[in-house]
């Protein structure tokens, strides 16, 4: 028996909206500790990793580990029927479920929707991602980072990110010209201005902006984002989800051979 009730169902809607341009189908693994999901884009350049802890749910029960193969497109169609203020419950009684039940309830419990989504059997090709001690970590406003990526992608498809003790520089070079945006450490008490740099080792890495713009669809999940980098390593972009878990994106760099 598996049942997970999320008080703020809108969080689940936002997660699916954030990943639906990146991955087509995912395996959600449910265990006693919560839900986890890892999936790569078709080019194996980017990866999304979701972890939702059981104690972040209003109710959570998972008698034995199960894997739920979902089509993101079909999941989106079902979630469109959930109101932003609804609770969302996922449920199945079977051990090898062929479908997953969804219940959407409004605050007054005066409207209850029930859907059943057919499940897919997907081969679980998952990457072993070691816990990395990143040498450059940047915490900043997710809206600000999203804006920087959007603005620079009108000049080039590629951005170079260079960190130093006191600032991070986003540089682009394209047919029309070049540009850079330098953001300095800023302990402002205003969220949108605060920038926190932890630079043990400076890095200079190059990434495709179209992936960063896809990752930034997760801005509605968290007002801050962290950029985690080490030389010659994929970038890890993390959106923490209050009291529930985190949504992480990994992006392989572009490297001159």
């Amino acid at each position: 028996m598996f049942e997970a009730k999320l008080q703020q169902g809108v969080i689940f809607k936002k997660i699916v909206d954030a990943i639906k341009d990146l991955v087509k189908s995912v395996n959600i693994d449910a265990s006693t500790s919560g839900l986890s999901m890892q999936a790569m884009d078709s080019a194996h350049v980017a990866l999304v990793s979701l972890k939702l802890n059981e104690n972040g749910f209003k109710d959570y029960r998972c008698d034995r580990p199960i894997t739920l193969g979902l089509s993101i497109e079909n999941l989106s169609k079902i979630l469109k029927c959930a109101g932003n203020d609804d609770t969302i419950t996922l449920q199945t009684d079977e051990e090898e479920p062929s479908s997953l039940k969804f219940f959407f309830e409004n605050q007054q419990a005066s409207k209850i929707s029930e859907f059943s989504l057919n499940l897919m059997s997907l081969d679980s090709e998952s990457l072993g991602i070691p816990d990395t001690d990143y040498s450059s970590v940047i915490q900043m406003s997710s809206a600000e980072f999203s804006r920087i990526c959007k603005e620079l992608s009108s000049i080039s498809e590629t951005v170079e990110i260079e960190t130093s003790k006191e600032s991070v520089k986003f540089s682009v070079q394209g047919d029309i010209g070049a540009g850079s945006i330098t953001v300095k450490n800023n302990q402002s008490d205003k969220d949108v201005d605060r920038v926190d740099l932890q630079i043990d080792q400076p890095v200079k890495l190059t990434f495709a902006l179209r992936y960063l713009n896809m990752f930034n669809k997760a801005v509605s999940l968290s007002s801050t984002v962290s950029l985690n980098m080490s030389e010659e390593n994929p970038l890890m972009v993390e959106y923490k989800i209050d009291d529930l878990g985190s949504l992480r994106f990994y992006l392989a760099p572009k490297i001159s051979d």
């Binding site: 080019a43 350049v45 990457l127 072993g128 590629t158 390593n233 392989a252 760099p253 572009k254 490297i255």
Partner: peptide, 14 residues
């Protein structure tokens, strides 16, 4: 010209 790498250059399939 920089080449886009793939994640399996950095991480092993588990």
């Amino acid at each position: 010209q920089k080449q886009q790498k793939r994640l399996n250059t950095f991480y092993e399939f588990s």
